[in-house]
Design a protein around this nucleic acid. Structure first.
Lengths: 180, 180
DNA sequence: CTCTGGCTTTTAATTTCTTAAACACTACAC
DNA sequence: GTGTAGTGTTTAAGAAATTAAAAGCCAGAG
């Protein structure tokens, strides 16, 4: 997985030598050398001390590496349309492997409902209402949003979307990481 | 940093016991126990084997930062409107600390342009065109998208948005992590 | 009650990483 | 040439993580 080169890149980006990084982080310079050569696998504790002093989080450090090069444009017809009960949606970049973002254009028909059992999953999500009205329940909060309104919440909190009106409701939503 | 609880959560989410995870990953079950109790700091190599078998990347694992509890609804009037040249946009949840997602509703007036110097930053972004037409340049690819079309690309690749038409173009976009 | 089978935790032995110091190399000053 | 200061690499001793096996615990079956 070449963790060594990544650490080296991070270190050099900060303009530090192995010894300077060693002094600042309190980690031995020999250890840094061995890690950069992929001769040993550092402890998470050690790696954290190193990344702290080059001001990178573990998340960034490991997140950067799974880049893939998703890069694409999609015509409207290319966006596959899914249907689930009274909800119809199109997903952007559904087949991009390793993507971090899920973007949906959703249409809730009258009575469209994500279901009585609340949804709950890792990550965060948000969106904007483009037309119609939608009732959103998040935890113990309930709100009815209309055109132009927006929401943003932690997806681990149980949530539910319901179209109580008699006109279609359209939403563009995004969440990270993708749920499907 | 409570790496232990996070591993435990990931394991239980997969419905595995310590022993099952041990067998599948090839890591000793005692080690798993000690890690979950934060009694030792695992080697990155070991942690990777564990996360691989619960289908989590190191990036996701460390990226799932402190939960924070962003949870809010925003009325249309509450979304602050920014302006930058011929581009006007509203951001969802601009003031939520530590959020991972940036969602924008953007309006490009005729000649609206992100500028001659291409943009480039960490992360990924995508969006859907709601009205009008927009020219998007990503790396050496150029495309003109109309209503209903969409895009998704790695934000590290230099990119530019331009409204060449004479009608306003409206887009909802999302990117992770936020750029401002 | 007792046994079985599942779980997590703990212990001793082994392996591995981490440290400190020495090594080798380059560049610059005097 | 020689000394000094910088770089990254390598080595033996010590510290810490990993392993394998044993010890507890709890729930259910007989």
């Amino acid at each position: 997985m070449d963790l060594g080169s990544r650490l080296k890149a991070a270190r050099e980006k900060k303009g530090l030598s192995q010894r300077q990084l060693a002094r600042l982080s309190g980690v031995n310079n020999g250890t840094i050398s061995l890690i950069e050569q992929n001769k040993i696998s550092p402890t998470v504790a050690i790696l954290k001390r190193l990344l702290d002093t080059v001001s990178k989080s573990l998340g960034e450090f490991f997140g950067d590496h799974e880049p893939g090069q998703p890069e694409r444009f999609f015509s409207a017809a290319e966006l596959p349309e899914f249907e689930s009960g009274e909800i119809v949606f199109r997903q952007v970049g559904a087949n991009i492997p390793g993507r971090k973002l899920q973007i949906l254009r959703e249409r809730y028909l009258p009575n469209g409902d994500t279901g009585k059992t609340m949804l709950s999953h890792d990550g965060e999500e948000g969106g904007i209402v483009l037309a119609g009205e939608i009732e959103i329940t998040v935890g113990d909060e309930v709100a009815v949003l209309s055109e132009g309104d927006a929401y943003y919440f932690n997806s681990t909190i149980p949530h539910r979307f319901r179209n109580l009106g008699n006109v279609e409701c359209e939403i563009v939503s995004a969440c990270t990481p993708p749920t499907f």
